[in-house]
Simulated scan of single mutants.
Amino acid sequence: MVASLVIGIIFLIAGLGLRYWLNRRKFYRRGPMGAEGFSSYESSVFIKFIEKVGKWIAYGLIIFGLLSLWVYSREKKDREIQNMEIQKQN
């Protein structure tokens, strides 16, 4: 039960951190006119591809983290219901 809470928090923080880092890199790559600066066309294509893949990985981490937190809340609620039923029987 606690494992899903810990995993959910770790994956959520990792996903949000990855999104922040990617957006920060993109922001600081822009010049005064707002255009992104790359040293060559190949580096532009490669960096944009890696950032796009990283963005999808970050979305996956965030979704997995949220699902893990949801599972934890459901497990906690089920355990509370079981405890109440046991107390009613006694």
Rank of each mutant, 00 (worst) to 15 (best):
M1R: 11
M1I: 09
M1N: 12
V2R: 14
V2P: 13
V2Q: 14
A3Y: 10
S4I: 05
L5Y: 04
L5T: 00
L5A: 05
V6F: 02
V6P: 03
V6W: 02
I7V: 15
I7F: 08
G8Y: 00
G8S: 02
I10H: 00
L12V: 01
L12N: 00
L12R: 01
I13N: 02
A14T: 04
A14Q: 04
G15I: 00
G15K: 00
L16T: 05
L16G: 06
L16Q: 05
L16H: 04
L18C: 03
W21C: 10
N23V: 04
R24V: 08
R24Q: 15
R25M: 11
K26I: 14
K26Y: 08
K26W: 10
F27K: 12
Y28I: 09
R29T: 01
R30W: 05
R30N: 05
P32H: 01
P32Q: 07
M33R: 15
M33K: 15
G34N: 02
G34E: 06
A35F: 07
A35W: 09
E36C: 06
E36Q: 07
G37W: 15
G37P: 14
G37M: 15
S39W: 13
S39E: 13
S39I: 14
S40M: 02
S40V: 02
Y41D: 09
S43T: 15
S43F: 15
S44C: 15
S44I: 10
V45D: 05
F46K: 13
I47Q: 10
I47C: 06
I47F: 08
I47W: 08
K48E: 11
K48R: 11
F49Y: 11
F49S: 13
F49C: 10
I50Q: 08
I50L: 14
I50Y: 09
I50G: 07
I50K: 12
E51Q: 11
K52P: 10
K52R: 14
K52N: 15
V53M: 09
V53I: 11
V53C: 07
V53F: 07
G54W: 02
K55G: 13
W56K: 12
W56F: 11
A58F: 00
Y59G: 10
Y59P: 05
G60V: 03
I62K: 07
I63Q: 03
I63D: 04
G65E: 03
L66Y: 01
L67A: 04
L67R: 05
L69V: 02
L69Q: 02
L69C: 04
L69H: 02
L69G: 01
W70I: 14
W70A: 11
W70K: 13
V71G: 04
Y72A: 03
Y72V: 01
Y72I: 00
Y72T: 04
S73F: 14
S73N: 11
S73M: 13
R74A: 10
R74V: 13
E75G: 03
E75I: 03
K76Y: 12
K77S: 11
K77A: 15
D78K: 13
R79V: 07
R79Y: 09
E80K: 03
I81S: 05
I81H: 01
I81A: 04
I81Q: 02
Q82E: 08
Q82G: 06
N83D: 10
M84F: 06
M84W: 08
E85K: 09
I86E: 07
I86P: 05
Q87E: 11
Q87P: 06
Q87Y: 13
K88W: 06
Q89V: 12
N90E: 12
N90I: 13
N90T: 15
